[in-house]
Simulated assay, not measured.
Amino acid sequence: MNLNLKNKVALITGPAKGMGRAVTLAFAEEGCRLVLAGRDTAAIEPVAAEARALGVPALVVRCDLVDAAQTEALAAAALAEFGRIDILVNVAGGSGPIGKTGWETTADEFNDIVELNMTGCFNTMHAVLPAMIEQRGGKIVNVGGTFGMRGRAGRVAYSASKWGLRGLTKSMALEAGAHNINVNCVAPGMVDGPRFREKVCANMAARLGISLEAAMQRHADDYALKRVTLDADVANACLFMASDVSRQITGVDLPVDGGWAML
């Protein structure tokens, strides 16, 4: 796929594993110059090495996204290295408590996931937007979730954080649009991987007294396409939103869920 992204500078948060790794390598394959940010740089470096093996530069920057000063320093490092920031993809996030009702969820559990999933994205957008405004263009892709579109029992904190991210995305899209900047949200459904299998499915299996495989199938059966999402599906949606193929799309939520949020 050639989306004319070669030599664009893409800043990606949470690139070390899962969706983040898939997104990072998808942008590398398109020829983007990369800035990879997260708290654990040792975990990011192997992904950066894979990207460099594809022929693109990859700068790794340690950054705690909930610290505004660190995200400002992150943007400054990207500008110092490459002179511009064309794309921001906010993949970093957490799941919060699973299987707890709202009254069982502690205030700390709620606040921690809201801060990571909402404040972290606000901080990175706040940091990169001045450069995008100055260069008269940019693409911001926030990775949300379909539980921020329909809600989900037992996932109160996570669902609230992703609903909030939708509002943040839409408001920023309205504000940044006049500067030729698109701001969108890609909303995965359940994504196959260790967190899905070892936390989500394991919780369901224990609660219902069924096997892990049966729990996975129950999730798949919820979707129109009868399959859960893969990391590559999310990466492809992010590429689409970061390219000029989607030039006239902003402020939207794109479910990548096999048909769950719309049912």
Rank of each mutant, 00 (worst) to 15 (best):
245 V>C: 05
40 D>N: 12
167 G>I: 09
165 L>G: 12
42 A>K: 11
21 R>G: 00
45 E>P: 07
159 S>N: 04
207 R>L: 11
79 L>I: 12
124 T>Q: 07
53 A>V: 00
234 V>Y: 05
109 E>H: 12
60 V>E: 00
256 V>L: 07
140 I>N: 00
108 D>M: 12
214 A>K: 13
89 V>F: 00
18 G>A: 00
122 F>P: 09
86 D>N: 12
101 T>P: 09
130 P>R: 14
210 I>E: 09
120 G>F: 09
248 Q>V: 07
127 A>L: 10
18 G>R: 04
94 G>Y: 07
125 M>W: 09
70 Q>E: 04
53 A>I: 05
121 C>I: 14
134 E>A: 15
251 G>P: 07
89 V>A: 02
214 A>Y: 05
51 A>M: 02
71 T>F: 01
57 P>I: 09
42 A>S: 09
4 N>P: 05
23 V>N: 02
37 A>S: 03
99 G>Y: 06
38 G>V: 06
194 P>M: 08
128 V>F: 10
208 L>P: 08
125 M>G: 14
161 S>H: 12
177 G>F: 01
195 R>Q: 12
251 G>A: 07
12 I>R: 03
65 L>S: 01
187 A>D: 14
218 R>S: 06
263 L>M: 07
43 A>S: 11
226 K>H: 12
223 Y>F: 14
54 L>V: 07
246 S>W: 02
239 L>W: 00
196 F>G: 01
26 A>E: 00
259 G>K: 12
210 I>P: 09
194 P>S: 10
54 L>F: 03
202 A>T: 13
245 V>D: 01
67 D>E: 08
63 C>I: 03
255 P>Q: 02
166 R>D: 03
160 A>F: 08
213 E>L: 11
39 R>L: 02
45 E>M: 04
75 A>G: 15
76 A>R: 13
26 A>W: 00
111 N>D: 14
158 Y>S: 13
215 A>V: 08
170 K>E: 12
248 Q>N: 13
113 I>A: 15
85 I>K: 08
55 G>A: 04
199 K>D: 04
78 A>C: 09
97 P>M: 01
79 L>Q: 08
44 I>M: 02
196 F>W: 12
165 L>S: 14
25 L>N: 01
9 V>R: 02
33 R>E: 01
101 T>V: 05
6 K>D: 01
251 G>W: 05
234 V>L: 06
136 R>N: 15
184 N>Y: 05
20 G>A: 07
206 A>Q: 15
199 K>W: 11
224 A>P: 02
81 E>V: 05
84 R>V: 09
200 V>L: 09
191 V>D: 10
152 R>T: 06
88 L>F: 06
46 P>E: 00
238 C>Q: 05
187 A>F: 05
198 E>R: 13
147 F>D: 13
187 A>S: 15
71 T>V: 08
180 N>W: 03
153 A>N: 11
159 S>F: 05
52 R>S: 04
104 E>M: 13
109 E>Q: 15
43 A>R: 12
206 A>M: 11
21 R>H: 05
66 V>I: 15
83 G>H: 11
196 F>S: 04
52 R>E: 03
